[in-house]
Computed example of a mutant assay.
Amino acid sequence: MLKEERQQIIMEKLRHEGKIVAVDLSAAINVSEDTIRRDLRDLADAGLIQRVHGGALLRSPAGASYKERQFMSSDAKMDIARAAVSLVQNRQVIILDGGTTTLEIARRLPIGLHATVVTNSPPIAVVLADYPDIQTVMVGGHILSPSLVTIGAATVEAFSNIHADLCMLGVCSLHPEMGVSTPDYEESLVKRIMVTNSAEVAALVTVDKLGTGAPYTVAPISDLTYIITEADTSDDMLQPYSAKGITIMKGKK
């Protein structure tokens, strides 16, 4: 079997099954584990998969710039935002993580909402400036350009002193076994403290990020309270998450 044929089989199995185990795949197509590992290395170098111990997951598509992502899956993000806003209540302390989906949430908050919103996203802070009864706390740090969020030791320290009722978490990758992960190490530390210091956590996930992995772990799947995803996401795709006791919410058209 040619290398291209093997790699096509690997990608097809990942899209269908969500994960591959190298030893099982080598037996299934009758090639050595070393050959499979070389194929996985090539696919990882091409940015198509995320290698994990013993196998691989699909790589998240979240590598585009913030400006580019504003125009990707825009209808799905609006649907997710409409569902997410239903969780918001007066007098809450809410963490709005950075991202284009959380930006849509900021735009759809009730105009009369009385709440404190803490964010590390300058675009979200600008939107919230138009809300007369929202106290906006903009957390400082240095800017991560691809995501337009603040990161670094100062950002982590600021969030460590905040205890939120609800965190709206932007998600780069979500997998039922690997949990929440992200491509940037420093951003993973910021997201981790957001999750740790929130009573409830809602993960905002477009369907293309479900079942994918990235290099840096944010939190295990058990730390999530809700997963909010697109209206048309199949129940089969969501079953591994609901089986772990997470409340699944689908976007509102």
Score class of each variant (00 low, 15 high):
Gly152Gln: 13
Ser121Phe: 09
Ile9Asp: 10
Leu48Ile: 09
Leu109Gln: 09
Ala46Ile: 05
Ile9Gly: 05
Val85Ala: 01
Leu57Gly: 01
Gly251Lys: 06
Lys67Pro: 01
Arg69Met: 09
Ala81Arg: 01
Glu68Pro: 03
Leu58Ile: 08
Pro215Ile: 14
Ala154Pro: 03
Gly18Trp: 05
Gly211Lys: 09
Met194Ser: 10
Thr217Trp: 05
Met72Arg: 14
Ala214Gln: 14
Ile9Lys: 10
Ala243Phe: 08
Ser74Lys: 14
Leu204Met: 04
Thr212Phe: 05
Ser188Cys: 13
Leu166Val: 02
His163Gln: 14
Thr233Lys: 06
Glu17Val: 03
Asp223Thr: 09
Ala125Pro: 14
Pro132Cys: 05
Leu40Tyr: 12
Val190Ala: 13
Glu177Phe: 07
Arg69Cys: 08
Leu169Ile: 00
Asp130Cys: 07
Cys172Asp: 14
Tyr66Met: 08
Arg15Phe: 12
Leu48His: 07
Gly245Ser: 06
Gly18Ala: 12
Arg107Asp: 10
Pro183Asp: 09
Met11Val: 07
Ile193His: 07
Ile111Cys: 00
Asp133Ala: 03
Val180Ala: 13
Met194Asn: 11
Glu230Gly: 14
Asn90Thr: 08
Gly98Trp: 04
Ala64Val: 06
Gly141Leu: 04
Glu33Arg: 15
Gln239Met: 08
Glu5Met: 15
Lys209Phe: 11
His175Tyr: 10
Leu148Gly: 03
Tyr241Asn: 11
Lys19Phe: 12
Lys252Gln: 14
Gln8Pro: 02
Tyr66Ala: 15
Asn120Phe: 02
Ala22Phe: 04
Thr150Arg: 05
Ile151Pro: 05
Gly55Phe: 11
Thr119Gly: 01
Leu204Ser: 00
Asp223Ile: 01
Tyr241Phe: 15
Ala231Val: 08
Arg37Glu: 13
Ile221Met: 02
Leu43Lys: 12
Ala154Tyr: 07
Ala243Arg: 13
Thr206Ile: 12
Glu230Tyr: 05
Val205Asp: 09
Leu224Arg: 01
Ile20Met: 04
Asp232Trp: 14
Gly170Ile: 00
Asp34Ser: 11
Ile228Thr: 00
Ala44Met: 08
Lys253Tyr: 07
Ala56Glu: 11
Glu12Ser: 10
Ala164Asp: 03
Arg6Val: 15
Val180Asn: 06
Val118Phe: 00
Asn197Lys: 11
Met11Cys: 09
Lys77Leu: 00
Val218His: 02
Thr150Gly: 06
Leu169Gly: 00
Lys77Val: 00
